[in-house]
Design a protein around this nucleic acid. Structure first.
Lengths: 223, 223
DNA sequence: ATGCTAACGCGAATTGTGTTGCATTTTAGA
DNA sequence: TCTAAAATGCAACACAATTCGCGTTAGCAT
């Protein structure tokens, strides 16, 4: 958040998708004015949401709570985000893009290990399942639909593609990584299967990465 | 639902877990009386929930809607299930146990293929993501906690264990299947990555099963 | 069959959530 | 600087969700 008030500048190429969906409540009919006060209230609301999540753990904050904490009037929040789910999704997407970079060094195992370790750690934090929940809610929302979800996911998938390209892993697709890394980590966290001790985290991460390697090997030569 | 009114008889060993958590609103202080009318209203409510899900797709029904449709008074539903989430979870767990059997023939690939195919198909139905959502909500509920979730999942895991035992796949654990099969299918359905054409389903299923085989081979001999 | 009481139905009361009209402030452009 | 309109604050409002008290029904044990 630093000193700059304009929090509109999120991360990399995922911004359009975020703006297109999450903050869809905005009336951009005439000439929009995203600067100044608008950015300021947006930042205040986001900040309040993050703090509330930090406090309350997995219990999602209501719009009324966010309004009280941020000092922004509830009607304003309703007008801009429409529903608590949309607000949470907006914050979640922005947070993920800030917090979970996808490394591209050319060493597949190293990249995957770094990314997975980061992912596992983040799912343990209070509200760590918030992103999954926000995505799932969006996926179940008929207003958004499959197309909308894919727009949200697309930038992450393309980053995975870069990681794979850099290491020459042509046997794998971004969707494979999604299924072999993201999916088990999130659902593992969900059923509380992830180890709590930090030293066991490394073993868990290594196992997941090994699975990816195993699939890659199997596809290149089904011995 | 057949002719029998007592829907209390669910499936296999997952019943205790269901009763212990989902229907926790029941006052079992004195001498309980789960038969007769109680079972009848429970059946009516469950039936209404299923029908509403079938109609409305992914949009979760409210308690008021369920009350209207089932003919059971809303206050009664509130008293027994406390929240819509608990009700949905109750129905979801029961449905899964009825709809998704875990085959045990001794042939790992065959068992996995049958199970996965069933799973993929069920996630496509209206409300197919309802179970995932119900579990996730439960996982995020502090009242339930990690212990509660594990109780819900335990019976399924033990079934997976039987499947693995029968085929001598000692390299794999039930959690592996959870991470390699359940997780990717659910999250794949979530981001709309699953193919829609029925003939592509087989390819998708085969790919997932192959992944499991690959991991098993890799662990038995990391060539 | 008879009594005890859990479970239910009913309707009112309460709370919480989301909407709308209007005055005021603030932004972006002329 | 000045102006049109976008964004916000405010308060009243409409509506849905949840709880409560109380009388009635119906399992279950005796």
């Amino acid at each position: 958040m630093s000193g700059d008030e304009r929090s509109t500048a999120a991360t990399q190429d995922s911004e359009e998708a975020t703006a297109a969906l999450a903050a869809d409540g905005v009336q951009t009919v005439g000439n929009a004015r995203p600067g100044g006060r608008t950015a300021r209230t947006r930042a205040a609301v986001h900040k309040a949401v993050r703090e509330l999540i930090e406090q309350n753990g997995e219990t999602a904050p209501s719009i009324l709570e966010v309004a009280a904490r941020s000092g922004v009037h509830a009607a304003t929040i309703y007008r801009r985000w429409r529903t608590p789910e949309a607000l949470l999704l907006d914050v979640a997407v922005e947070t993920v893009n800030e917090v979970s970079p996808i490394p591209v060094t050319g060493d597949l195992r190293a990249d995957l290990t770094a990314y997975t370790h980061n992912l596992v750690t983040s799912t343990r934090r209070p509200g760590g399942l918030g992103f999954l929940n926000a995505m799932l809610t969006a996926a179940r929302n008929p207003e958004i639909g499959p197309t909308g979800i894919q727009e949200l996911v697309a930038p992450r998938l393309s980053h995975f593609q870069r990681m794979l390209d850099a290491s020459g892993a042509t046997e794998l697709t971004p969707l494979d990584l999604f299924g072999l890394v993201l999916a088990p980590v999130y659902l593992g966290a969900m059923i509380g299967a992830l180890p709590q001790a930090p030293d066991q985290t490394d073993r868990e991460v290594a196992e997941i990465v090994d699975n990816v390697i195993a699939v890659r090997l199997y596809r290149s030569s089904p011995c």
